[in-house]
Design a protein around this nucleic acid. Sequence first.
DNA 1: ATGACTGTTGGTAACAGA
Length: 256
Amino acid sequence: MDMRLATWNVNSLRSRLPRLLPWLAETHPDIVCLQETKTAAGAFPTDELRAAGYESAAHSEGRWNGVAILSRVGITDVTTGFDKEPGFPDPEARAISATCDGLRVWSVYVPNGRTPDSPHYAYKLSWLAALRDALTPALAAGPVVVCGDFNVAPTDADVWDPAAFAGATHVTVPEREALAQILAAGFTDVVPRPMKGPHPFTYWDYRAGMFHQNMGMRIDLVYASAGVTVESAYIDREARKGKAPSDHAPIVVDLS
DNA sequence: ATGACTGTTGGTAACAGA
């Protein structure tokens, strides 16, 4: 059957609800992975999303982070976090998984890393390695899609200017190697088509007119296992325009 | 124009994001 899957770092679900709800009505995704919901436990807008036709599963912690999965095709076997998930020092709300109509879906928000010499960078690498380990048994159980803000640009073509990122996080060899290790576990990188220009960027800094100059990055990724047939995928950069947007655009993936 | 950051909080400045 056909299924439409989306992933979007909304940079505060409460602030973005006026953008998310009409977008859901226009785009009609069956499953939506959200990151940076920034919702406190108990403050998730379950009722508003139910009224829009979606069941919710959320992993919330308050001021930072927060991930969720929305579904209108059922949502069962919800797991928050994963086995041996590292923390800083305690595990944060960065991963949630659920089964939606036979598909195992993960929504992840990888630690930023800040700078390569920061303890947050080591945390990021250990988190990615542990995610890879946690995905191995999931892959054995059936088709899996891992969606989210990976906070790593897979190649130099995935940043607007590689020279501008010299010495910065998101582009280092160890980060890219961590992505390669996840792919090697049994995934394909579903590269979405950009709506405009050659670069499939998903994030543009709010500052200095970065968006209108198309100075972006591809750091939101969709990893699909064998058994998941992707018909098409695109970045909805229209959702990055207008009043009070997130700094990330959603990725929409049509599966069959 | 899609426009020059935006989100959070025992807040009103500080920090995080990437």
